[in-house]
Structure formats: C-alpha cells, structure tokens
C-alpha cells in the first residue's frame, strides 16, 4: 500500500494526523522519509508542522526498529521492585543499551514509562506480549515465543 492510501482515510477525522501516523507505522514498522511530505499534502499542513508532531511523540520512529522490540519499564513502581538491576541485567544479556538496536537488526531495547503493571513489577513488553514480575529468563522465553509466532 502506498503511503498516501494509508494516510488519506484519516483526513478530516478528529486528531487524524496522529491516527494516520500510527497506521503508517503499523504497516511499515517506522515512518519512512516520505511520510512527512505525504502527510503534509494530505492534511494541508506545512512539513514543519508534521515534523513537529512526529518528533514530539515517543511512539513515532523515523528509522527501522529491530525485528523484535523489547520495552522495559523504567518508572518508579518498577524501580521499587528491582527494576534498575533488571534493566542492567537485560542490557548485559543482549549486549545492548536502552534505545539501541542490535547490528543484526533482530532486537531493539527501549525504555517505557509505565505499562500499568505496577503491582506485578518489574514489567516489560516483548512486541505485544506483556511480561509481569519480569526477569531475563522470562524475557528470553517471550523472545522465543515471538520468534516461533513470526516463523509460523
């Protein structure tokens, strides 16, 4: 599908630009370079305005992410439950720092500020799989399942 065919359905809807960007990212995994110009044209905005929106929100990625994205909660409730050490152990395990993508493009590590799983902390999300009382073992297990699912 072309970018414009992904974007057009949201023109005229409340907050349509943000919904359109979500849709482009859902399909492409990130926002390709032409997104800015296409969205500006469709919504009759300046490119600067669109860029302003894209750069404002953490969700919008301007570069491809790893095949699997592991998001680790860095907020207080998870800190209280050993989250800082948990993050360190995951970083060590995969040889990546938060915000980095592996050279093979298999994996991205990313901080997230609260998944609403504060009573089963520390929390993580492996693609769309939620992990409570997380440790490196649980993350590895979730990664294996994600791999299996994408293979099948």
């Amino acid at each position: 599908m072309t970018l414009s065919s992904l974007i057009e359905p949201f023109v005229g809807r409340t907050g349509g630009l943000i919904s359109a960007l979500h849709e482009v990212q859902r399909v492409h995994g990130f926002l390709p370079d032409d997104t800015e110009a296409e969205a500006a044209r469709a919504f009759n905005l300046s490119r600067a305005e669109v860029k302003g929106v894209i750069s404002f929100y953490h969700d919008f990625k301007r570069a491809p992410q790893g095949k699997t994205v592991v998001r680790l909660c860095a907020a207080e409730a998870c800190q209280a439950a050993g989250g800082r050490d948990f993050i360190k152990s995951v970083e060590e395990k995969f040889g990546l720092k938060m915000g980095e993508t592996s050279a093979s493009k298999d994996l991205t590590l990313e901080p997230v500020y609260c998944l609403g799983l504060c009573s089963t902390a520390p929390a993580a999300m492996v693609d769309d799989r939620l992990v409570g009382m997380a440790d490196t073992g649980k993350i590895e297990k979730a990664l294996e399942r994600a791999k299996k699912e994408s293979a099948s």
Binding site: T14, G15, G16, L17, I18, S19, L21, H22, F43, E49, G52, V53, F56, Y57, H58, D59, F60, Y113
Partner: peptide
C-alpha cells in the same frame, strides 16, 4: 470514539491532551 495517544506523558495534562486530540503536538 476511542483515540489512541502516541506515548507522551504530558498528554495526561488536560490542555496538552486537547491539543493532541486535535492531531497537534501535545503542548
């Protein structure tokens, strides 16, 4: 209608939220 935010803590502030719901930067 349900509107999906895009990962900005500040959008929990009501005026920032309204800007975001209008499709703008959540200032």
């Amino acid at each position: 209608e349900v509107f999906m935010g895009a990962g900005a803590y500040i959008c929990g502030e009501e005026t920032s939220l309204l800007n975001s719901l209008e499709g703008k930067r959540g200032e």
